[in-house]
Design a protein around this nucleic acid. Structure first.
Lengths: 216, 216, 216, 216
DNA sequence: AATGAATGAGAATTCATTCAT
DNA sequence: CATGAATGAATTCTCATTCAT
């Protein structure tokens, strides 16, 4: 997920032949199995309530092996967070890729629908991996990559005169957090119909953008 | 520790029934001192990192006394949360009370400005008291009272034809969470100028509502 | 042992009556029971091999109670060391007190005999409490109080012309460490006859001091 | 890690029987490199604090290689101890070899001076390798070879009527441990002038032996 | 001979909570 | 009301050692 696809285990020198023959398991497979086991347990029981030993048991390795792949328990939460974010972005990217490049309202609809869908599907893991995430401790603009992605799209749409836009980042934040809150509410109220919610949100957002429907 | 100085006359101890005379300290005061001490320590060190003993030390009482006022440590976090929410609502209410009853755009501006101000002032405590708050575990609609308040205001404005409104709750959520996220971002970027932010947000929100400025 | 005899528990304010009525056990009794239990177990199994839980079990308290009296496991070793040293010195002091004040050879004999006796009796505990003691990390002259005591005695004897003495501290060190090594050797060879050893050592030492037997 | 440069010609790998040709490194060299690395790390960080992996890293071999040369971690401490003792004895032997064979006071002076010098130079390693050494667990007389060497020298001197001697071993122990303690004290007080100390000790020891200066 | 991934036992310490006084 | 001594559950992480390659 994070460290490429077919890379040899970390710390392995580029040995004499090709890839160093996998020991018991190739490093990323092991790592991935640990991440999967952790995600499952964290969702089911919570992070605090899950011991490292439970994770390794579920992954079929010894306790010490955990620490060959992650420096500490918090570290695996961070790794899961990165995996989550990448999955989230990929889903949005895929949705946008099947839109007309210049149909900006459609692109916004696609963004909303895919984000709602991704969040509805993954909110349990989301809660786990973002529980300890402190936005205020993050200094740099653009820390939230999803917001940054969106701001870029909004800017592109504005450049194409699809809508007006004073402050792309602020607008992107309002869209993202608004959507986030709306989905949270839907989940809390057990309304898992993402399509209806997406439609409503899109309309709201397009209106906020003062969308020029002729421009698309 | 060095108490005993502000105790009521010894003679009064015998009268059980009279008025609920103050003890060493009136119960409300003690409770409040504990809440204050806890808030201070939680902000400075975090909740987990603060022990009940530290709280009682800071409040000048013995460890056991804590449990006369709060059933458990998590309980005092909940109490702080409630205090925080009430302060937040009060600040918004005050702001709205100095607006024209029927000037809806002004009312929305006032809501935005006061919410931004309250959050900027209290975000440290906010982070503490909401860290363990899980929206998805809350079942009931309207759990977030601030959102509910706002939805009611939006509905009233719509009834007065100040703006259009399809889904008051959804709109309220987007406004609230959007504002929330925008302030988080401002804090993270160390831009504590609430006025500029409020102005931007208000404009965005009024546009989203399709505000009819004639209607105000 | 260390904190006086009848003092109230640490942290206890000098309460309204006399001594604060002992809770379950007076503080020094508890402390002493923990020290005794630890000494027994450390001798039998070694320090590393003894868990804090074993100590508390043997002392009849809960695990946490240990940390009410000692900051850490190494800390109780230090406390035992202090207790050991005090016992050692007391034994020597008692022996010297029953000597003629001015009979210096007799005083030296008494010092040797009591030190040999104390060490033979307590070498097991000695090994435990001095295992981690690093002489080189100690800066100040006179860190070893037993050596310092002895140097003072040697100086007094020299002043009375009982013997010659160039360097009291150096001489004291040689006597103390020489005796120490001699007893170690006796123990290793299972020769526990302290009297014979003492006699030999005394003779050696008196000769080293160039003792003037007329002076006594 | 970046090995392979000093390997023997590949062709030789096939010859199994020939002479025990050097492998990557001759076994003695490897062993010595491991000992050196361990000594350096043990002195700098302590034995407990040094991991086997750190030793192998410092020696430029893989973790498993350690166990081809030493059965366990404690074992390498023992090996270092033996190396230390041999160096110590060699230094003394060299010093004695440049003395008149029959000048016994000079020989004693030489013994003291070389022992003081060797200990001052090597006390850091000494502390490491003797930390876990328990004299009382050693059964056999003469376990401490340096003491035994000394006792033999003292006996020879006595036979030559250079001094009187009742109990050679006891005397040797007192000299050795006395010197040991004196150097410890000098180190603790940061007085690294071995010559002055040696002179004082020699005088003390010669007096203890009742040296007959005519006899030398 | 050399490697290094995998193993898994093992214990100190914290701190929320109780309850006898 | 107030106190504070006593309780004891609960879990991370290290690292010596092994062994398949």
């Amino acid at each position: 997920m994070v460290d490429g696809k077919e890379m040899p285990p970390i710390g392995q020198r580029t040995s004499r032949k090709q890839r160093p023959k996998p020991r018991t398991k190739p490093s990323e497979v092991r790592r991935s199995e640990l991440l999967d086991a952790a995600a499952r347990l964290f969702i089911a029981q919570g992070v605090e309530e899950t011991t490292v030993e439970e994770i390794t048991l579920a992954a079929g390795v010894a306790k010490g092996t955990f620490y060959l792949y992650f420096a500490s328990k918090p570290e695996i939460v961070i790794a899961l967070r990165e995996r989550f974010i990448e999955g989230f972005r990929a889903r949005i990217r895929t949705a946008l890729d099947s839109c007309g490049q210049e149909d900006w309202p459609e692109r916004l609809n696609a963004w909303v629908a895919s984000a709602v869908g991704a969040y509805l599907d993954g909110y349990e893991l989301h809660d786990v991996v973002f529980h300890d995430y402190r936005p205020h401790f993050r200094q740099m603009k653009g820390e939230n990559i999803v917001v940054t992605d969106l701001a870029m799209m909004l800017t592109a749409g504005a450049r194409a005169a699809a809508w007006k836009l004073d402050d792309p980042r602020l607008t992107a934040i309002v869209l993202f957090q608004g959507l986030h809150g709306a989905v949270d509410d839907a989940i809390a109220n057990d309304e898992k119909d993402g399509d209806r919610l997406s439609a409503h949100l899109s309309e709201l957002f397009l209106r906020m953008l003062g969308t020029n429907r002729q421009a698309g």
